[in-house]
Amino acid sequence: MTSHHSIPGTVPFGPTEAMKGYALNRMCYSFNADECRKAFLADEEAYMAKYNLNDQQKAAVRARNVLQMIAVGGNAYYLAKLAGIFGLNMQDIGAQQTGKSVDEFKAYLQSFASKNEMVMKGGKNV
């Protein structure tokens, strides 16, 4: 496993996370199926136990806390399916992880729009 300087606020999903988060991601993968989403909503604890989540993973899911889920090996592409169950969109998720309100997070995204024209016109390197 190659080591790199860390990128602040970023956990690339590599071998360590793949092993650590397998049960959690496997549960999230099951949520492609409507009957699995319903079974989770009907009895969350039983569903997490069925997928062998460890105590930290269960706590992260109970807390609906995305940063905690990442810390226990969650992969963004799979966690998105869990977020969908709770009706959360990517701005809700972004706001939660960055400690901003949803409006503040949207304003943050919007702040990059000043660059649109530069990129349309070919960028500074052209």
Partner: peptide, 21 residues
């Protein structure tokens, strides 16, 4: 784009311009 972590919301138009070019 970056969906996950405290850096969620990261966007880099300068690098995108470099890629498109």
């Amino acid at each position: 784009h970056q969906l996950d972590g405290e850096r969620a919301g990261f966007i880099n138009a300068d690098f995108d311009a470099e890629c498109l070019h």
